[in-house]
Design a protein around this nucleic acid. Structure first.
Lengths: 213, 213
DNA sequence: GCAACAATGTGATAACTCTCACAGGATCGT
DNA sequence: ACGATCCTGTGAGAGTTATCACATTGTTGC
């Protein structure tokens, strides 16, 4: 399985992620095989869109039959690189950080939480998972370097996000996911995604305002 | 000037939301006036993109000068409908729900938390904010109806998301923001946004995998 | 009052993404 | 073995979004 070297839409990648969820559900509902139509129904994407998305990466179905749900899930995980074991850290163990740490998601998608950091002295030393205790943020650079952590998740307040990002970068992080409500800046080499949870609410407000008129 | 709004890209709406954040920061940094270049630098969007985005809604700047940061922030909030006072509820007061409730964001963007619900009996009755206590999910329909709640935020586990959505809809909710890792289905009339936090992580994994090759 | 300048607003164009329709290939029944 | 049927994979085209270049218009200095 090798990618054709055309550029792949970002939206496609986003959808692939949701396909995994839907395929899991379909399996749980006893569907060893599915069609692009059934999968589309399940995750609210058009069948043609699904086939197109998959076609960027190869051929995963059987014509006249459909897709093996379990196999397809594995293929998509392969495509997204979720079969790696990404050493990951969470910085900022507030409510949002804890919410993320709670998700069963991490292990299922190949992310291994190696460390967690916070600046609150009361939290330091607390165990957040099997063998992972909260460290002070002063330890970020050293720990990232020693443990070869590749992914950093920033769930701090806005005013410390950039500082934390700098420390992670100094430690040699490869990818950053920033949930703080401010866009952080890092060197070109770092893969960065700024996620704005709240903008979804703004978006909803806009759509509702439109509908009224 | 077109009479009926031509279709505005969803991406534009998303960016407008981030412009608000950046404009606030610029104001905090003592910039009463900014240019599309400075604002673009601040929120990592091209100057042309910013001007185009704004042009969908009117003319907000002064040629040769730029934009009044405070005024523009107000204009964008007006466009997004954040000057309304949206009666809002959060269903599922787990870590993610609590994280959202903690954000100062709500009041600043015109969302007023009217009620919160959870199915955990130990949480029911707890006060989460000035005068808002957690109610059992059995009260959803009645409360939404009585309080005329228009926006519902779902932060439950996947397996109760659809059930909760149905109750909110039964109560007459207008817009739904679903953070549960499963797409819920609601009647056409309801404005719905399914948000997948975890897909951002998958996306990051993909980008990192690509970079390696 | 006017020229030089600065930064917006926008039509034209390029780039990207989705949709459609159907060809390709597998399976099933007879 | 063969036709009917099914569902995938994909090129072509429609539709959407971003970029570019510059005309436009307000400001400033002399």
């Amino acid at each position: 399985m090798k990618t054709k070297e055309s550029k792949i839409p970002e939206a496609t990648i986003k959808r692939l992620s949701t396909y995994i969820n839907c395929l899991e559900r379909l399996q749980a509902e006893n569907n060893p095989v599915t069609s692009s139509e059934m999968l589309g129904e399940s995750c609210q994407v058009s069948p043609a869109q699904i086939r197109k998305d998959l076609s960027y990466f190869g051929e995963f179905g059987v014509r006249g039959v459909g897709y093996d749900t379990k196999k397809l899930e594995g293929e998509i995980k392969e495509i997204l690189g979720l079969n790696h074991n990404w050493p990951t850290t969470v910085v900022g163990v507030g409510k949002l950080g804890q919410a993320l740490l709670n998700f069963a998601f991490f292990s299922k998608h190949g992310f291994r939480i190696i460390a967690a950091f916070d600046s609150d002295e009361n939290k330091i030393g607390n165990e957040i998972a099997h063998g992972v205790t909260i460290l002070p943020t002063t330890e970020i650079e050293k720990t990232v370097k020693n443990e070869k952590i590749t992914i950093g998740i920033i769930t701090t307040p806005a005013d410390s996000a950039q500082e934390v990002a700098d420390k992670l970068v100094a430690g040699g992080i490869k990818g950053l996911l920033n949930f703080a409500p401010i866009k952080v800046k890092v060197p070109e080499i770092i893969t960065l995604r700024n996620v704005s949870i709240t903008s979804e609410l703004d978006n909803l407000a806009y759509l509702l305002t439109q509908k009224k008129r």
